[in-house]
């Protein structure tokens, strides 16, 4: 059976700075220069105030797990990777991302603190995954 390709992002003028940032090890989100709100995913207009004056800024790369699932039945090209963990992470800046949780030997839980780790997929795409921040108290 031939291995089906994994989904590859089609870069556009909204998304290019984000994906290029991933390759450079920088997590880029946007901030609206008019209303000062952070925005993710990147777009050409602020969903909070309709301004078109948005700038990419570097996120700290720290966040909290909002929810997650451990996938036991993957679709298509992901079926051989199970089990793996997908999460929604709330960045400290206040925006939410979908991601994978990696290096969570003890498992992961909602409310856990996580940090970004850029990971190269087997096809070369660099994705922003997150891993638990090791602290004395979880």
């Amino acid at each position: 059976m031939t291995m089906q390709a994994k989904p590859v992002p089609v870069l556009d003028t909204d998304s290019r700075p984000f994906w290029e940032g991933c390759r450079q090890g920088v997590l880029r989100i946007q901030r609206c220069k008019t209303c000062a709100q952070y925005v993710f995913y990147p777009r050409s207009i602020c969903p909070h105030c309709m301004s078109d004056d948005l700038a990419f800024v570097e996120a700290k790369g720290l966040g909290t797990v909002y929810t997650y699932t451990v996938v036991h039945r993957g679709f298509g090209p992901f079926q051989d990777e199970v089990p793996f963990t997908i999460a929604l992470v709330d960045l400290d800046e206040g925006v939410r991302m979908m991601t994978r949780i990696v290096d969570a030997g003890e498992g992961i839980g909602i409310g856990d603190r996580v940090e970004v780790v850029f990971s190269e997929r087997d096809d070369g795409l660099v994705l922003p995954y997150f891993r638990p921040i090791l602290t004395a108290t979880r």
Partner: peptide, 21 residues
């Protein structure tokens, strides 16, 4: 069912690459 697209554009590119079914 269970088909995964090879390319994902627009706003779908921020979720599909992670492999959530």
């Amino acid at each position: 069912r269970g088909k995964v697209p090879g390319e994902v554009g627009l706003t779908e590119q921020y979720e599909a690459p992670f492999g959530l079914p």
